Amino acid sequence: MTDFVESAERRALRAAVADLAAGYGPEYFTAKARAGEKTDELWADAGRLGYLGVAVPEEYGGGGGGIGDLAAVCEELAAAGCPLLLMVVSPAICATVIARFGTDAQRRRWLPGFATGAVKMGFAITEPDAGSNAHRITTAVRRDGDEWVLSGGKHYISGVDEVAAVLVVARHVDRVGRRLLPSLVVVPTDAPGFAHHHIPMEVVSPEKQFTCFFDDVRLPSDALVGAEDAGLAQLFAGLNPERIMAASLATGMARRALDQATAYARSRTVWDTPIGAHQGVAHPLAQCAIQVELARLMTQKAAALYDAGEDRAAGEAANMAKYAAGEAVAATVDQAIQVHGGNGLSSEYGLGALLAASRLSRIAPVSREMILNFVAQHTLGLPRSY
């Protein structure tokens, strides 16, 4: 199914993306974020060169690759100091769901835009009173003649101010008012009744978070993606790629922090000796390198399983990869700051901006505690604890 050495094509893709990202770098990304601007130039270049569409089917203008290829793009951008959060959402979750479950008309409408980066789409599942429990979502969608009517709200939804539409997870309500299994509907951000409000965050990122409100938003019949009550199986077709991509975003950020820390440890001299010669500095960095590489390997396995159609095994591996990557990036950024001493939190070195983002990797898009619950129950066969 997979090899421990990536294919020549995948390695060439990584090199090409790294070359593109090097022309932007952390200074560009951080300056855009602090100015409240978007990284439109980088996104447009990545789309023009085909990197955002590597996993879109060829018949719709994409590269015809798998989630492993898209994850490689995401990782290399993050490793170059440009962690694009919307890569986790738009070309990974939304394009994957539409490619797998959309109608022919939906695929023709949306996938070419995903392939070039001309279209960005958000994804909305989280609700304030549901948290990690997707079974408790209350946002509802019901039929009204030839239309759908959406009502409810979502919380912590990424990039609503820069996407054309949002793929919303809502519970299907039948004709007698019973709330059935989840459905997926595409909601244009300019639809009447759709409002969104910015949530201020400490994370330094051009991509902002929002609360969304749906006040009887009317949608055409073709807004529905897949079955009316598709349930969690269809939903996790998008969430497993999300976890693989989140792991790649995290390992990319970890690689950047580790590269910066080791460069500093080689060049910073105290008492006529580079600080990297001391085991108190070298060993923690070596431990971080091992953690990052193990997380990358687990992410590679998860992507290979998903691309092979092994959804159940991919779900387990994607959760493990997300957990490992979240722990690795949090530990690595923390250690990189420690190696730099006071410089670790100076604006000159930029590591402070990574601190909140790295810590977020242990929380979103699924918390480490819920992953441990999943592994305990599904991998170890222990009784369900929640």
Rank of each mutant, 00 (worst) to 15 (best):
V5I: 14
L372A: 13
F194G: 02
R136M: 12
I157D: 09
H340C: 13
G25W: 04
A15P: 15
I244G: 03
Q234A: 14
A286C: 00
V173T: 11
V97S: 09
G145S: 11
L180C: 13
D272L: 10
G122T: 04
F213Q: 08
R14G: 09
G117Q: 05
H135Y: 15
Q106S: 12
L111F: 08
V149I: 15
V17G: 04
W271V: 13
C74I: 15
A8I: 05
T299L: 02
V225S: 05
P83A: 14
A170W: 10
G153W: 06
A130N: 07
D259K: 09
A72G: 05
E76K: 03
M121P: 01
Y323C: 00
A246E: 01
D104Q: 14
L42V: 06
V166I: 14
P220R: 10
C82L: 10
A18Y: 01
V333E: 09
V149N: 00
H198A: 11
R266P: 03
G177H: 09
I67V: 15
Q260I: 05
I67K: 03
D146L: 08
E293V: 01
L224T: 05
G131L: 13
E127P: 03
R243T: 06
E27L: 09
P91N: 08
R218L: 02
P57F: 05
L13M: 11
G280V: 15
R171T: 08
E147S: 13
D307N: 08
L49V: 00
P26T: 10
L235Y: 08
L285Y: 09
A357D: 07
R34S: 01
E6D: 15
I244C: 12
A277G: 02
T211Q: 13
A314L: 03
E242T: 01
W271A: 13
D259I: 00
Y306L: 08
A71D: 07
L150R: 01
N319K: 13
K32Q: 15
A246D: 00
A321F: 03
R368M: 09
V166N: 02
I67C: 07
G350S: 11
V329K: 01
I290A: 15
L360D: 02
E37T: 08
V168W: 01
S221W: 03
T30L: 11
I137K: 01
A95Y: 05
T2Q: 11
T251W: 06
A364L: 13
A308H: 06
L85F: 06
T139I: 01
A324M: 14
A303S: 12
Y349F: 15
L84N: 05
G61I: 11
A55M: 11
L235S: 08
S183D: 06
Q377F: 13
P383Q: 14
Y386Q: 10
W43D: 05
A331V: 08
Y51S: 02
V97K: 04
A79F: 01
S347M: 05
C94H: 04
M245D: 03
N133K: 09
K208R: 15
G131N: 11
M320V: 10
G193S: 06
P192W: 05
L380D: 00
A302G: 02
Y323H: 13
Q260K: 13
E327R: 15
R296W: 02
A223Q: 03
V56W: 00
A78V: 03
K120L: 14
R48A: 14
V56F: 03
A15L: 10
P274G: 10
V97R: 06
G238I: 06
V5N: 06
R100H: 10
T379M: 09
S267Q: 12
G238F: 04
D161K: 04
T251K: 02
A18H: 09
